[in-house]
Design a binder for these strands. Structure first.
Lengths: 199, 199
DNA sequence: TGTACATCAGTGAACGCGCGTTCACTGATGTAC
DNA sequence: TGTACATCAGTGAACGCGCGTTCACTGATGTAC
């Protein structure tokens, strides 16, 4: 059978993880097939042995990034909280910090790609839409949101998602570190006013 | 002197307005020189008689979009408010509505481009950073924010900017109209809890 | 007023480069006997 | 155990297309006399 299948699977995994990081770091449009393969330690010619097309890679890499980052952000929120810190503050803090802002490639895929979603394929949009719903659930959970159980009532959980994604997006957008920090701090303060409202 | 200079200036203005709409609608990366000139009723060859390069067009078009949309959004907030509506609600309502979400090309340049800013040139980032500061001022004004006057205190005006931009970005990103509406409504509800806090 | 000329906004063909995709080939690995 | 063969992941040259940019040319307008 020549080369081992395990070896090939390993290569593909390496390409996927590289692409998953690159699309979060530089955006979907900026992902080049040759660039990505080179970063994974291969040449561009080998690409089509693993993926049907650039679009196929993008979708798989996005699913990888979403699945990994969504879980990881939630996990960090349960690991790090200091005594007396609310679950909402712990969860928000995982997003609203300078390390996350400066490391888009290893961070939340929704924060990294929300702005590009409307120009992307329907498949990409669907994956990111699911991410929005998952974040909403995490926040409702974090606040034990009994108040959000009624369907008609307008809860603020989705508003908190918007604030988190907007804050990270803006903090990465501006060319001033000081302003970026202010955006993070102010957004956290805004979210924390909801601690009572959601419980 | 051959052709009138006024005619040339008119052509350039038409190209600028077309580009200003196109970059908000489809993103900066997607702007093609030929596409843009065709939409303005010219051929691509005439482009370099008006602009030094594609990048130069992008910067001018962005400045045009920012200058126009920032003023327009603020103006609408002062024109439309119903009796008893707070200034903060009026301003937020200009962003958080379906018409704005579906008409990126005629809307807020920051909402349209915040997600791309970190991949753009320093010049582009500077222009958008100014926009963030202007929006913050509008919100502070809208709330007469006496509370925000102390420099050390963490106000929530920037958090409101983040919520507005995040909400519009997410509402445009998701592939469900229903979810988009919920994002807008929930974000407005979240912002309005600040009406008291800022006054 | 009329005619010849100069100006220049706009045209459209062409160039060059980057990038997604294809494909003939290589050479390391595993199998058959 | 050793040798010949088959498999196939990966290589690197090449193709084709799109797009930013260049440039020789056109023709409408205004000026000079």
């Amino acid at each position: 059978m020549g080369f081992s299948q395990a070896q090939k699977a390993e290569s593909k995994q390496r390409v996927l993880e590289t692409a998953s990081r690159m699309i979060r770091e530089d955006g979907i449009d900026a992902l080049g097939v040759a660039d990505c393969m080179r970063s994974a330690g291969l040449t561009h010619g080998a690409f089509y042995g693993h993926f049907a097309s650039r679009d196929a890679l993008i979708l798989e890499a996005l699913e990888h990034a979403v699945g990994q980052s969504e879980k990881r952000m939630a996990l960090r929120a349960t690991q790090g909280p200091k005594a007396g810190e609310s679950a909402l503050k712990a969860y928000s803090g995982v997003f609203l910090n300078e390390r996350h802002v400066k490391n888009a490639g290893a961070g939340c895929a929704l924060c990294a790609l929300a702005g590009e979603a409307r120009h992307a394929s329907p498949e990409v949009r669907t994956v990111l839409t699911d991410y929005v719903r998952k974040m909403e659930s995490r926040i409702v959970q974090a606040a034990h949101a009994a108040a959000g159980s009624s369907e008609d009532r307008v809860g603020t959980a989705l508003g908190i998602v918007a604030t988190l994604v907007g804050a990270v997006t803006l903090a990465r957008a501006v060319d001033s570190d000081k302003l970026a920090k202010s955006i993070l701090a102010s957004s956290l303060a805004l979210i924390l006013t909801q601690d009572a409202a959601l419980q």
